[in-house]
Amino acid sequence: MSRESVINWIVLAGLVAVPLWAHLSDEPFTITLATRAVILALAAVGLNIALGIGGLVSLGHAAFFGIGGYTMGILAHHAQTYTPVMEWPLLIEGTKSMPVIWGLSILFSALAAFLIGLLSLRTSGVYFIMITLAFGQMFYYFAISWAEYGGEDGLSIYVRNGFPGVNTLVPIQFYGLCLVALLIVLGFNAALARAPFGLALGAARQVPARVRAVGLDPYRLQLLAFTLSGAITGLAGALFADLNRFVSPTMFSWQLSGELIVFIIIGGVARLFGPVIGAVLFVVLEHWLGGLSDYWHIYLGLMLLGIVLFGRGGVIGMVAGRERSHD
């Protein structure tokens, strides 16, 4: 077993053991922190498909996170106020069912990612970063001015949505749901990276001319990667909204897009568990350092600087060494 997979198993064991321990010793706040970490990890794992394999540095992934969040917020808001989402041309009611909300979050964020990708992928490098940022900001300002759904104040959802057979009001059960979602997506990512699609996408990052010369279109490969990436981040947004029982325009903020990139860089770009480690470290630091000082971001910044300057492979790269050939 490679050192990287040893790290992965340790992280996985921690994600199972720590919340269980917290549950048994009645520390619900620790479970909430762990849930937050897992959901942010899920969002960053989504981004890692575009950024890690595809080399697409998107500074607009908060758009998909927010779309997922608002999908949940709007549907649940209508369900709790007993008003339809729309009556014409067809009647659509709100819902408190997680599976339905998740499905729609994935659908809407995938659609948004497809449309944004269609335009932004025409550019590359710093222009791509700027155009994705611009799209993200469009959603942010739209949400702020959307008075029907709380505008700047956002929407509160009073009771967490339901999942068949699970009591989502019990922290450890909701955590379990989030962890399972993360694991499924990680499994999908691991397969994707080795599948023909992942191989072609990685080659499109490294040598686009070669990819064209063998009869493949980098643009289409990147468009699918961006769409899948956005869909997963959208799912994370729906879970995040359910964790907080609150959605607001801050879910669309560009700072969040930046944080997702930071998670990936801290953990290790294109590493399966890179974003997970990054998100966990972020949440832990935010909690501990945040308790010590209001200026805890300085320490996070120092850490990021250290990693970028001295350990390009992130935490995983520093512990496991350079990535070896796969399979």
Binding site: A195, A200, L216
Partner: peptide, 16 residues
Amino acid sequence: IGATQRQWRLVRPALR
């Protein structure tokens, strides 16, 4: 992959 146009296969490892 280019020759067989199998680039949309998302799950099974290319080398298998």
